[in-house]
Design a binder for these strands. Sequence first.
DNA 1: TGACGGTAACTTACCCTGGGGTCACTTTAC
DNA 2: GTAAAGTGACCCCAGGGTAAGTTACCGTCA
Lengths: 202, 202
Amino acid sequence: MTESRAVGTKGMPREEREAQLVVAGTEEFGRAGYAGASMVEIARRVGVTKPLLYQYFGSKDGLYLACLHRAGDRLTEGVATTMAEGGEPERMPLKVLSAIFTTFDYDRYAWRLLRDETVPATGDIAAAAADYRRRLDAFALLGATQLMTSRGLADPVDIEAIAQVWTGVVDSLISWWIDRPDEDAVAMTARCSRIMEGLFGW
Amino acid sequence: MTESRAVGTKGMPREEREAQLVVAGTEEFGRAGYAGASMVEIARRVGVTKPLLYQYFGSKDGLYLACLHRAGDRLTEGVATTMAEGGEPERMPLKVLSAIFTTFDYDRYAWRLLRDETVPATGDIAAAAADYRRRLDAFALLGATQLMTSRGLADPVDIEAIAQVWTGVVDSLISWWIDRPDEDAVAMTARCSRIMEGLFGW
DNA sequence: TGACGGTAACTTACCCTGGGGTCACTTTAC
DNA sequence: GTAAAGTGACCCCAGGGTAAGTTACCGTCA
């Protein structure tokens, strides 16, 4: 009989349930930060209880790491591909933005996991997040260097600052985007293109 | 006698101690976020214990509000003054940055309190922070409107996006600055000026 | 000027809730 | 019948918050 009993299996394979939990975890961690997110809330979103979450991911850190790796791998991969294509320095920012928007159109909170400052300062999470950030910063640094060099500027500290500001720009664009679910990746890219053209002539 | 006993008054007037605690609180809240910050740690920084903190500020929210108001009032005041002076749209960003850097040269974490996403979603803190953000956003919106208008662009949604990106830029500049305590407000302003000139010709 | 009382500045030791984490158990699919 | 999917009920501790007590400063009065 299919009476809705609370206890017992619901017939969903582990792999699928895990994917659901990673999606829910990404949203919750992205929204509230590692410190502010609650495991029971993440389980509740999926219609499941905490022990199952722990059975599958071991710990809060385990779940966070799963979310982080999914987001980080997709992101670094997308950016690496775009950067490898090359092009004029002034066109790279828009191309990278387009790649990010496309990659995370249905997963907008993912970006925030890499930049969450509420994770414990030491441990696996901090190390993994720092590693992803390091890789992305390297791309940002490369892009900033190409851009500055093309204008005859070369102060390395300025370039560092620009690279960091760039990640902040991506950050705020994504925050803005999160609040406007109707705007898809294509529209978002077009908007950025229009703005860069208008403000900088890029 | 002045033997160092643990218990009993240390002779510091309430006003002075409160100021110390607000400074320590601002740093700790700014660093770890509302959710991640610990009251006992804030008290410990000042060489005092938790109950005193509670006697003076009532609750974690009370302390946070005190820190937030100090930061928010100084910030909105400084920006309002700068914006009131007026000038070419392209020069305003640098002028505002200069005001912010000068105001917070010895208090670099303060800015983050206004943008902390780990505060409870409802209640006094959320309301106060939202109010400060609203006021700052209004200035950003005004500046963005002037800038876009001077270039013949007027899409209001684009302008909103630019305003939000602007706050993100300030955010990341301050984060970068926090990691470089040797760079003072003047040097920071000069750096931003150089970069804007180089990248955008502003 | 010294004793003294009142109050402000502090602490120790405690309570209590929320949330991470676990154990033993139940049910359904195959 | 067995293994996988899933739960209720529990432990434990960090951290917010409090009660009650201790000490030093300071004004006042003889």
